[in-house]
Amino acid sequence: MSIALIGTVGGLTAVGLYLITARSLSRIVLGFALLGHAGVLSLLAAGGPAGKAPIISSDGTTTGIANPLTQALALTAIVISFGLTLFLLALARRQEELTADDLVEDDLEDRRIARLPDLPGDRKP
């Protein structure tokens, strides 16, 4: 497994994770795109060393070809993450239509607790 591949996976994961912790959905979309790439790359890395195109020649030799199975898996994963990126973008667009921004809002429970009256012993921030 090449160091460059591991470094790339690590870098993509780090940036992706940082982006999905953002409030803005468009950043989260970018984060997931990067994380998806990192996942696909690690799948490829798991398939072993790179090699020739996985086509079995007429005499049946398979030496030196790359592992085709992980490539098939990676291809499927790419298609799925592409579709999901589009869905997230559509969701961000809808949120923008409704609220004029694309920020992820607090859930109902958080808001309800924030609205609760302060108890007498509570210290004000």
């Binding site: 996942g39 799948l43 798991a46």
Partner: peptide, 11 residues
């Protein structure tokens, strides 16, 4: 996404 990474680890 974690599932995808998990698949890579398992493989």
């Amino acid at each position: 996404t974690l599932f995808l990474f998990g698949l890579a680890f398992v493989y």
